[in-house]
Nucleic acid binder design. Sequence first.
DNA 1: TTGAAAGCGATACCAA
DNA 2: TTGGTATCGCTTTCAA
Lengths: 347, 347
Amino acid sequence: MPKRRARGGKTADAPQRPARYPTAMIIAEKLGVSKSTVSRALKNDTSISETVRRKVQRLADEIGYRPNAAARGLITRKSGIVGLIVGESQNPFYSEQLDRLLIHLAERNLQLMLFRVPDGGSVGDVIPVVLQYQLDACILASVSVTTQADRMLAAQELPTVLLNRVPGRSHGSAVLCNNMDGGRLIGEHLLDCGASRIAFIAGPENASTSIEREEGLRLSLEAAGKTLFDKAPGDYSFDGGAAAMRALLANPQLPDAVFAANDIMALGAIDAMRSAGLHVPHDVLVAGFDDITAARWPGYDLTTVAQPVDAMLSRVLDIIKNADAGFANGETIYLNGKLQIRGSTRV
Amino acid sequence: MPKRRARGGKTADAPQRPARYPTAMIIAEKLGVSKSTVSRALKNDTSISETVRRKVQRLADEIGYRPNAAARGLITRKSGIVGLIVGESQNPFYSEQLDRLLIHLAERNLQLMLFRVPDGGSVGDVIPVVLQYQLDACILASVSVTTQADRMLAAQELPTVLLNRVPGRSHGSAVLCNNMDGGRLIGEHLLDCGASRIAFIAGPENASTSIEREEGLRLSLEAAGKTLFDKAPGDYSFDGGAAAMRALLANPQLPDAVFAANDIMALGAIDAMRSAGLHVPHDVLVAGFDDITAARWPGYDLTTVAQPVDAMLSRVLDIIKNADAGFANGETIYLNGKLQIRGSTRV
DNA sequence: TTGAAAGCGATACCAA
DNA sequence: TTGGTATCGCTTTCAA
């Protein structure tokens, strides 16, 4: 007597529950071959006779067989899934970047799982969840990585890449836009335009991107024997940019150029100036950073630094692929942005 | 002699490969209990002694044990993952919606896999990939569902919900904003503002959302004994809205109000009017649909219909949950939007 | 309340 | 080139 089976057995005395979807076993039975053969036939790198390969392939296509990713991942220890951890942010730059990321991933047959850090929480809150899924790698963007989270990640065997975040003490890799260089490009350009009273609208206090962009701006000013004229704190949001601009306008002497640490704040700043009856670029030059779509809208026509998004993502995926192959990973890559001169600084 | 093991066995003669992360088996061994017990202990609904439960729980927390989602999914046939299929689109509305979706999912302990239909492709292209992952459900947004894809999905046991898409012949469910009613709201409002020559800027030709919004507009006009004054084709993009507006401006007589089928086109239309020296709202009233963030920017201050995003997503998740429980699903839910009156129609 | 054992569906080793 | 079999890590009967 055959062994008894708890579920879905194939013995006549057990109730048959039809599979919810075709499995390799079903194909094997229909074709009178072993499931090993079916498995081999469907990835055309292992030794198999062409006749059998085609036979299996045809039936598989016919019944719409798709190997179960979970089962495969269990044994191969590869899920084909990359995780992306994002924070709360209405910055359009991230959604534009996300769209590009999906394209890069698709090119390499990878899928994406998206994790969002809860409002007011930190990366550490989602890491336990992330780890349940056998991700091939994990990208962190638009979130600040606490040292605690840093340690949690370093303790795992999950290859991690920071996108536009300065790496902490972990052994993960990072790909960043050269923010300092970008800040310098803007500074030099504003000086070229004849500006002498240049103000900076900063992002959140601890945002490395903002700090570096400011540093680049300062360096270019120093090189020209000048200093930063004014500075207002912002928060990388449209409203924050507008508020910062109003703060700058409240001072007795106005700047003749403003560099906002990102585009969305620059747009807010422009709106605030217009409300105050000022004209861009005639009264004040304005520049941003990121080159989001709205920066190209004629109503703003914003000079900015375009982040090399595709190049950055390409490097991110290279790192993921190498980590996959078992190479040590712990590189930090800076890629230069490109100055986009538009109407907001054209006098 | 014990059975030979190919990999990672526990017999002394086989080479030991340490687990890459803690498993239930490891906890079981350390605690001298069976892995069944560990499994039971961690979901506190099965019968287990409180002593053992706490003991297991503590060690699990200590070594950071997280059950392998793939292995669990293999047996439970639930992955805890919901898929979202999106098309190519730079409409900010979708990224704002995505952010909300992540929040709704997190509340129910669900994760998200994101699939993007390749440019120029159709949903049918990604369905085979989607099916490899044992998703609990699948949401289709911002993609047109071909009848072919419709059939592919209907043939699967994958609960599917269309978001703002009119359901085809499949047995899937759909949640939509009441676009017709929204169009009516805009029409009535524009008439209230004294407009008499109302033009419409349409979305892509086959977009049901655009067709329905137009229909609502027409109904409200008819009710007032009027007809649509003019219409220009758009494509749901900023540039498309601007181009459509220029087309309207090229006609001998100008409209005194314009309703764009979505916000992003309305913004483009406003920019185009300003470039042409026209003033909004004094020369022309403008209204959109969606209530994206940029609609609130002071530079646009756009009157629009706010889609009830949270209510819609809430219904989507209810449907998913019910489908999960095995209830038949084939409902179509319309939720009314809310008119947001702003400066672009305030005279 | 607990443990042993049978799978979930696939891959990969080994021997034939 | 093929089939048999052991596993991946977990849940779930069934028996104790």
